[in-house]
C-alpha cells in the first residue's frame, strides 16, 4: 500500500488511540467529495496535555521524523516536544502527517471544534471540518495552488444546498 495520503491507516490509528483531532486540508476535501489528490494527512490536534501524550504514544511505533530535517539528527516526538512546538510536518512509516496546533482562519482545536462534525470511518469516529470552514481555511492560507480546489469545494457546497 502506498504511504502517500494514507488516510486509511493514519486516521483509524489516531481515532483508536482517542486522539482529539480534526481532519482538515485535502483529506477533509476528499471526505466532502473533492476529486483531487493530496500527499499528506493534515490534522488540527488538541493541545491538552493528555492528548499530546496520546498523540505521541500512538505515533511512536511509526518513527515520526520532521520532513525538513536531515536524517540522523536527534529528534523525538514525545509529549514534551509537542508541547514546546505547535505545527509539525512529519514523515512516519504510515506516511506524511502534518500536526497543526493552529491554522490561519481557523485557530486551534477548540476554536475549530464548532466548525467540525463526527464521521464514522473504518469503524472509528473521526472529526472532519465542515465544507464551509474548509473553504475559509483554504482561502485564509492564501496559496495560489489552492485556487482550483477552492473552486471545486464551492461547487460542492452549492450542490449540497
Amino acid at each position: 500500500m502506498t504511504k502517500e495520503g494514507n488516510f486509511v491507516e493514519l486516521l483509524p490509528l489516531l481515532a483508536a488511540h482517542r486522539v482529539d483531532f480534526i481532519l482538515i486540508g485535502g483529506g477533509a476535501g476528499i471526505a466532502h467529495g473533492l476529486a483531487r489528490s493530496t500527499y499528506d494527512v493534515d490534522i488540527v490536534y488538541s493541545r491538552d496535555p493528555d492528548n499530546l501524550q496520546r498523540l505521541a504514544d500512538c505515533l511512536a511505533p511509526y518513527n515520526p521524523y520532521l520532513r525538513d530535517m536531515p536524517l540522523g539528527l536527534p529528534f523525538s516526538l514525545d509529549a514534551r516536544t509537542l508541547g514546546n512546538g505547535l505545527n509539525f510536518t512529519l514523515n512516519t512509516e504510515l506516511g506524511a502527517l502534518d500536526l497543526l496546533g493552529d491554522v490561519p482562519g481557523g485557530g486551534g482545536y477548540q476554536e475549530l471544534l464548532a466548525s467540525s462534525y463526527v464521521i464514522k470511518l473504518f469503524g472509528y469516529e473521526c472529526r472532519v471540518v465542515t465544507l464551509e470552514k474548509l473553504i475559509q481555511l483554504k482561502r485564509a492560507a492564501g496559496r495560489p495552488k489552492d485556487l482550483e480546489a477552492i473552486a471545486e469545494l464551492q461547487l460542492l457546497l452549492n450542490s449540497s444546498r
Binding site: T2, N6, F7, I30, G33, S37, L121, F122
Partner: peptide, 8 residues
C-alpha cells in the same frame, strides 16, 4: 469511507 478507499 468509499471516497477514501477510491483515493487510496
Amino acid at each position: 469511507e468509499e471516497r477514501f478507499l477510491k483515493f487510496q
